[in-house]
Design a protein around this nucleic acid. Sequence first.
DNA 1: TATAATCCTACTGTTCCGATAGGGTAATAG
DNA 2: CTATTACCCTATCGGAACAGTAGGATTATA
Lengths: 137, 137
Amino acid sequence: MLSKKTKYGIKALTYLANRIENCPVQISEISKSENISHKFLESILLTLRKAGVLGSKKGKGGGYYLLKPALEIKMTDVIRALEGPIAMVPCVSLNFYEKCDDCPDENACSVHKLMIQVRDNTLHVLRNTTLADLNAS
Amino acid sequence: MLSKKTKYGIKALTYLANRIENCPVQISEISKSENISHKFLESILLTLRKAGVLGSKKGKGGGYYLLKPALEIKMTDVIRALEGPIAMVPCVSLNFYEKCDDCPDENACSVHKLMIQVRDNTLHVLRNTTLADLNAS
DNA sequence: TATAATCCTACTGTTCCGATAGGGTAATAG
DNA sequence: CTATTACCCTATCGGAACAGTAGGATTATA
């Protein structure tokens, strides 16, 4: 299941991408438009800034803005920053690998085999989808 | 993330599918072979029986066995029984649909659009994979 | 009738998620 | 220079879900 953090993050990014000008947008503007708690959204945007997806400007007239064109922001980057692993089990994760306690041999594990298939298919979608593809049509 | 319940369930099913004879296998045999807590596995196999995947025989010499040939047991059925929804958000789930609180219009939602893509790709894998495909090679 | 095994309900400890609280810090307007 | 605005950061907390446990009831076999 996708966490609300990730869901709200994607919605906020889409909102930013749909603006005509890429100038700083305040948290409260996004929060009102997308029905997201102001404080919660604040922590989400902070995470995206630390991940290098968003830039921010402090003080009056400040806010958050996209650091790159929407076409260059891949969904893999966004989801990894907010959600963590894309894989459904840590033992098939590319970026967040962890060995299973119960599995003596990964290559003989049926779950491992299946989840690699799922991961590859999911990655294919997320790698080839950018923020620009999610724009309101 | 896949729950341990689902993971253990798939491992147990694979174990059953790999047996030469499809006669009742005791919980403790599977539990030992796959390093799963006996009691926990018990509840998992019970779920699979209620879902119509496994049959059981009580009393001495009893145990669990596959109700259908491995080739006819789809991963979608197994995962839905143990994990619940396959989709990453309830609003794109086929079997466990729920409307989002924050979304006035699903069709305009960027997350919705993206997650339908992911769901379709995942479903494609899980529908076309049966227990027989997971056999130890 | 003893024993072996599933069946079933309830409970519990832990972890994670979603959200909140409260102040600190930087930039801008005037 | 100062007030205001808005981001920055840490800590905390309630609740839900997960992983696993406990204990006995039931049923079938030998």
